[in-house]
Nucleic acid binder design. Sequence first.
DNA 1: CATTTCACCTGGTGGC
DNA 2: TGCCACCAGGTGAAAT
Length: 285
Amino acid sequence: MPELPEVETIACGVDERLRGDRIIQAWFSRHPRLFKTPAKNQSEGLAGRTLLGAHRTGKHIVCELGSASGPGAGDRIRRASVPEAQWIVHLGMTGRLLVTTPESPVESHTHARLCLASGRELRFVDPRRFGRLEFRDLRREAGFSGPGAEPLSIGPEAFAALFHGRQLPIKAALLNQTLLAGVGNIYADESLFHAGIRPRRQAGRLSRTEMERLRLALREVLEHAIRLGGSSVSDYVDANGVRGFFQLEHCVYRRTGEPCRRCQTPIRRILLAGRGTHYCPQCQH
DNA sequence: CATTTCACCTGGTGGC
DNA sequence: TGCCACCAGGTGAAAT
């Protein structure tokens, strides 16, 4: 479900609402594939820790956690401000993070329930179970960082270098998380439309001008989508249960046969890299 | 190594 | 209403 703008919205929501709260205990479902760190280790690792903050890296939500010392520890305030662990959430295709209370009915496909000192509960719900949950003890392992570049901050040279010499279609390159982190199917199609580039063009054969058009289009599309709270294609909601509105601005994604917003030509759909791919045959070359 | 395909899952939609 | 085929915001392993 979620790409960079949706993940950014959710991570910010979690940060604003839960920063400073403490995890009393954590419960997890019994679907081992969901857990990059075994569920038992996650429960033990999370219990008692303060949530110092949450942010996004690529499509991952990273929760920074303080020490697990109990409320009686004398130096807990100083120590609590230094991250000692991380809880890393990837939402996969259908994952959601919800802030609720223990009393609110537990939906089916709920895989994590974090009971918080404030009396609230943070839940992870994921019907298709493509999501991943991971715990890192920073005293024993490095903090999370994906290999891909951040599309919002990458400069012209580095962006062009990503695609140099590559023969795969530009859309496949945009989706490759080890090149750029956070771009998914919606924003790949939308940014290629705004840059006027066909999705099947070979990545390494784009002109310098086209590369720069694409870099700027990608950044503008992502920033615009973040301002609108992301795209709600089916049931996506942020941590407050609020839907995004960027789907109203989609120019090509899931608009097969509908008139292009710029030239009225019907939007075309093809299959590329196994994904539905949408473009305007008139505006994109 | 670079690139493509497919399995992993459940649920919604639309045709018959 | 039921059944079925097809589609879906993502990845990572296996095949080519």
